[in-house]
Write a protein that binds this DNA or RNA. Structure first.
Lengths: 140, 140
DNA sequence: GCACTTACATCGAAAATTGATATAGTCGCC
DNA sequence: GGCGACTATATCAATTTTCGATGTAAGTGC
């Protein structure tokens, strides 16, 4: 099992997977925040901070801007008066879904060109890839 | 073959694959430029522009800064007096390699926790993933 | 050798990000 | 039930990044 080569292949695959012909121009920080909110549901700013590569003031101002733009909403945390819970609005979720849909379309076009055997291999790897992600979340 | 789920799994995997505990603080644009230069060798600014999500003036100033910092070098293009060929210096390549090494180490720690069967599936998928990347480069 | 295009640079303004610091709520303890 | 330490988020000024508009100089076609 050549992990070095696996790493290289994923790195290279990502250069085509991540970049999308984007309708609206969001920077990387914004897209990452929207994605995290979509997965992690209502979350406090501090917890969101842990997954994003931003300092707290930058995240505060980004969240404020996205709230202005109606992509997310903040509700007071009922269990902690200092905090608020941030979650996507319908419109924010729409953006994440739309980007996802574009990726699915792009990937479908590629997968269609694979042989049936290759497709089977790829399909079989989905659970393993998912397992890797789970392990990463558990592993310190 | 559920491409939708494949897409989701890769998106989620990437949240742990991309982010690294970085020694030096480079932003996403910088890392992307360094990575592209490492793969695509000496390249003109305009061609580099195609893969990066920046406008030309931003890339010009980023390249100028990275040249100052000794991470890349510019040599005149012998075949075109207007252009110059940009390539990584040893020091620039060092950064890309170091980040790659961190990913390999991180991924190794995860792969070690898989069963032999899971590892075999993953190893088998490397070529297919690579094929997908090639197809993406060919596909318009 | 003259218009036209292409490759890159320059410049001022707008946006994003940061470090330092402030504010305000919470918790443990007596 | 109030004091001190801690935590969550906000604010502010300075820096960095990015952009749009435009310039310059080298190549290209006729």
């Amino acid at each position: 099992m050549d992990v070095d080569r696996l790493t290289t292949v994923i790195e290279d695959f990502n250069t085509i997977f991540i970049r999308l012909p984007s309708v609206r121009k969001f920077n990387f920080s914004t897209l990452s925040v929207l994605h995290t909110l979509d997965r992690r549901g209502p979350i406090r700013l501090t917890d969101l901070l842990a997954t994003e590569q931003l300092k707290q003031p930058a995240l505060t101002s980004l969240v404020a801007k996205l709230e202005q733009d109606g992509l997310l909403q903040r509700r007071p945390d009922p269990t902690d008066g200092r905090a608020s819970l941030i979650s996507l609005t319908r419109s924010g979720r729409q953006i994440v879904r739309s980007r996802h849909a574009h990726r699915v379309a792009k990937l479908t076009r590629l997968v269609d060109q694979l042989t049936p055997e290759e497709r089977a291999v790829l399909a079989g790897s989905v659970d393993v890839l998912n397992r890797l992600t789970e392990l990463a979340e558990e592993t310190p």
